[in-house]
Amino acid sequence: MPRRTARAQTFTEVINEVFLVNGELLAAGDALTAPVGLTAAQWQVLGFLEHGPSTAAELARRRGLRRQSVQETVNRLLRNGMLERSENPGDARAPLLRLTDRAWAALRQLGKAQVSWADGVAARVPRDDLETTLRTLRQLRDVLREA
């Protein structure tokens, strides 16, 4: 097996940490959303739709998620009254998804909880470190898109 360079080894460790952090973020998201009867995955879908209606396929593509997973989440949100479908003038086979009043209320409640949680977490990490991490993750995203 070929030996990794030190840079490739460090990058592999970054990947592992990102996966671990993602798991922690999902667990924190589930804890934040539980009082309003949602999951972190459902919150992610609702948060995307805050900016306007979208199809499930577009949502999956723009968030880098599997379409089937998004569709399952959308179906649960439709069943529990958080989303509604409307006609899509661009493609009759792909309805637009819109937030309901119930979803907007949940998002307002979650917004307050998220701000408090984020302030608490961010206070424990130096701001310069957070800014460096953000720049690095954006750079990695761009490099990976090009690769």
Rank of each mutant, 00 (worst) to 15 (best):
R67G: 01
Q139R: 12
T73N: 10
E24R: 15
R98A: 08
L77H: 06
V143L: 15
Q109P: 07
P2N: 07
W104G: 05
A8Y: 06
G29Y: 05
L99E: 09
G37F: 08
N88I: 01
E13R: 13
A40V: 09
D91H: 04
N80E: 15
E84K: 11
V121D: 00
R66A: 13
L32G: 07
A103R: 01
I15D: 10
S86R: 15
V121W: 06
V18L: 14
R4H: 03
R76W: 03
R63W: 03
R98H: 05
N16L: 10
H51A: 15
V36E: 01
T33E: 07
P53M: 08
L144M: 07
Q114S: 08
A94H: 07
G52W: 04
G23Q: 06
L20H: 09
A6D: 11
T10L: 12
D129M: 12
P53G: 02
A113Q: 10
V36L: 08
E17V: 05
R4W: 09
L59V: 10
M82Q: 15
R61V: 00
E17A: 03
A56K: 03
R61K: 11
L96Q: 02
Q71D: 10
L144P: 01
L107Q: 01
T33G: 02
V14T: 05
G64Q: 00
Q139I: 07
D128L: 14
W117T: 01
L144Y: 08
R138H: 01
R98F: 02
A57Y: 09
T132C: 07
W117I: 04
R108L: 12
V36F: 06
R4G: 01
A41L: 08
T5H: 12
R7G: 01
I15T: 11
T10P: 05
A40W: 05
Q9W: 10
L83V: 10
W104T: 13
R102I: 02
T33C: 15
L78F: 07
V36G: 07
Q9E: 14
L130D: 03
G23W: 03
F11V: 02
E131Q: 13
M82R: 15
L25E: 04
V74K: 03
W43Q: 00
E24K: 14
A57I: 12
L20D: 12
R62K: 12
W117E: 02
V125A: 08
L134T: 14
R67E: 14
A106N: 11
L137W: 00
T33R: 00
F19I: 12
P126H: 06
L134E: 13
E131S: 00
Q139K: 05
S69D: 08
R108E: 14
A31C: 11
T73L: 01
V70A: 06
R124M: 03
P35N: 02
K112R: 15
G23T: 04
R66G: 11
F19Q: 00
A27Y: 01
L20V: 10
F11E: 09
R138D: 04
W104Q: 15
V36Y: 03
T39G: 02
L137Y: 05
G90Q: 15
A27S: 13
A122W: 07
L65H: 02
A57D: 08
A28Q: 05
M82L: 13
Q68K: 09
R141P: 02
R3H: 14
E58H: 06
G81N: 13
G47V: 04
E72F: 09
P95C: 11
N16H: 08
E87S: 12
N22G: 13
